[in-house]
């Protein structure tokens, strides 16, 4: 195992025991060989690019995109690739990769495709090097020594940028989902309902409390029905948080009725030793609203024979 350290800041470990040239030599070699390599890539640009695009097509990658789109992206990536080999700086490439990811992620391009595509380019270029230097095995080896670390670094950069962009998109979606996920609805004067659907984690519970307490203020609520039919399970911390929310609502003058407690959640509440006298629970949402109406002194009466 040896470390090739190159003036452009590439630190790449290779495990080529066969070539234990000392670091100085290796560095010098990279400096002399890379320009040759770059010249070769410039010279055969159109044919290598075509080969790459064909192999992407053969491997059934990027099928979400039209062949024309694939080809134009292929061209940009190829040029960026050669530029990285030439300058040693991946800044530009990273920028481009992020931009590209932003365009292709919404179209359903997967991580494995992006990595596959970049590795294919690496293979195509390596093949062309094999062909070019096939008569001089020694030289081929040295060229590959210079080429491989750089190529690996490029592949890592592109894949990394793609994954980063993907994560950013996921985070963004999580945020918007969270916004949507806790509606505070007024069903009657002074009566709010808060249907909770989905997993209630600590962060969401916190947000729910804030929205509820603000909602009590703005709607001047006196009774709140929290329906947790759609919550599969809660851990003790969240159950505790729920109880505190009930207390805090009470401090603001609103009574809370909890409906739709599953047996799992009910057991959790009992396990953490909630003071059950403080909790007003009703089996289902309908019962909860009826109880709330009773507390508010509202009576719903069916009009006699309506519609007949």
């Amino acid at each position: 195992m040896m470390l090739i350290s190159d003036p452009r800041g590439w630190d790449v470990a290779t495990d080529r025991d066969a070539h234990e040239a000392d670091a100085g030599d290796a560095q010098e070699e990279v400096e002399t060989l890379l320009p040759q390599l770059v010249a070769h890539l410039h010279e055969h640009r159109s044919e290598l690019r075509q080969q790459w695009a064909d192999r992407i097509n053969d491997a059934h990658l990027l099928e979400a995109m039209t062949p024309q789109e694939v080809f134009s992206e292929v061209t940009s990536v190829y040029d960026n690739y050669v530029e990285v080999l030439e300058t040693g700086s991946v800044g530009e490439l990273r920028h481009y990769a992020r931009d590209l990811s932003e365009r292709i992620i919404p179209r359903g391009v997967e991580t494995h495709e992006v990595i596959g595509v970049v590795l294919l380019l690496r293979d195509v270029l390596a093949r062309s090097l094999f062909e070019k230097y096939r008569d001089d095995f020694e030289l081929l080896n040295r060229v590959l020594n210079a080429y491989e670390p750089a190529a690996n670094r490029i592949a890592t950069t592109v894949a990394g940028s793609f994954v980063e962009e993907r994560e950013r998109v996921i985070r963004q979606q999580e945020d918007s989902l969270r916004e949507l996920s806790t509606p505070v609805l007024q069903v009657r004067e002074r009566l709010l309902i808060l249907p909770i659907i989905g997993v209630l984690d600590k962060e969401r519970a916190q947000q729910l409390t804030e929205q509820l307490l603000r909602g009590i203020r703005t709607h001047r609520a006196r009774v709140v029905v929290i329906d947790i039919t759609g919550v599969p399970d809660v851990d003790e911390a969240v159950a505790d948080h729920l109880v505190r929310t009930v207390d805090a609502s009470r401090l603001m003058g609103a009574g809370v009725i909890i409906t739709g407690l599953s047996s799992e959640i009910a057991q959790t509440l009992v396990t953490i030793g909630v003071d059950l006298d403080k909790m007003n629970t009703v089996g289902d949402l309908q019962g909860g609203i009826e109880e709330a109406e009773r507390l508010l002194g509202v009576k719903v009466v069916r009009t006699d024979d309506a519609g007949h």
């Binding site: 409390t209 804030e210 307490l213 009590i216 203020r217 001047r220 609520a221 006196r222 505190r244 929310t245 207390d247 805090a248 609502s249 009470r250 401090l251 603001m252 003058g253 609103a254």
Partner: peptide
């Protein structure tokens, strides 16, 4: 304030509260 009070473990059983 309400949530902070509850977090700090304020005992409010004997207190009647209202919005405004």
């Amino acid at each position: 304030v309400a949530f902070t009070m509850v977090k700090l473990g304020a005992k409010l059983e004997s207190m009647t509260t209202a919005l405004d």
